[in-house]
């Protein structure tokens, strides 16, 4: 009886230690998006310039959807030039960059676009529906959508030139072919 107890106590600690080992290795701030690998939710917004902006019209192209806000300092300020550079470098290869401004005032957002000289289409999400559809919980967040219209990667935080290039090149390298099994 006593010998059994002597073994039982350290043995019972093993599952607890295993649980702690698992728990401490995962990053509590890392929230995996259930949307990666799934079709990108459709949206139809109006750009600051007044033009219609729908995801559907860009099917067949690699689309980079970036959620930002003018109050999101410094991350959005760091990545704005990166996105503009990426758009200019890749637009001729069939890449579209779309900016979605959330939780923002129109004047402040327009000033942001002017200050950074952004030339890719930008629109406001006035009801927050697009952000909820994309499971956005903060700015900036960037989604890389393949030619078949599926979300393939989500980047949280400022996009760097390396992140932009790596994701876009990977999706551009994929065959254009008809939609295969997802």
């Amino acid at each position: 009886m006593t010998r059994l107890w002597r073994w039982l106590i350290p043995l019972s600690a093993i599952p607890l230690l295993a649980l702690l080992a698992y728990g401490f290795r995962t990053n509590p701030r890392d929230i995996p998006s259930p949307l990666v690998g799934r079709p990108a939710p459709a949206f139809a917004l109006t750009t600051f310039a007044g033009a219609p902006l729908a995801l559907e019209t860009h099917r067949g192209r690699v689309v980079v959807v970036n959620f930002w806000a003018s109050w999101c300092y410094p991350a959005c300020y760091e990545e704005a030039p990166v996105l503009e550079r990426g758009w200019r470098a890749y637009r001729d290869r069939g890449v579209v960059v779309i900016g979605v401004d959330i939780q923002d005032r129109r004047e402040a957002a327009e000033k942001f676009i002017r200050d950074f000289g952004l030339t890719f289409p930008n629109a406001q999400d006035p009801t927050g529906k697009v952000s909820v559809d994309y499971g956005v919980y903060g700015v900036p967040e960037t989604f890389f959508i393949d030619r078949r219209g599926r979300i393939r990667a989500k980047h949280v935080g400022a996009v760097t030139d390396e992140v932009f290039r790596a994701n876009v090149e990977r999706l551009l390298a994929e065959p254009e072919g008809p939609p295969g099994p997802a």
Binding site: I31, P34, V132, Y134, G135
Partner: peptide, 8 residues
């Protein structure tokens, strides 16, 4: 909401 954000 769970479909978009996960059970988080």
């Amino acid at each position: 909401f769970v479909d978009r954000y996960g059970e988080w």
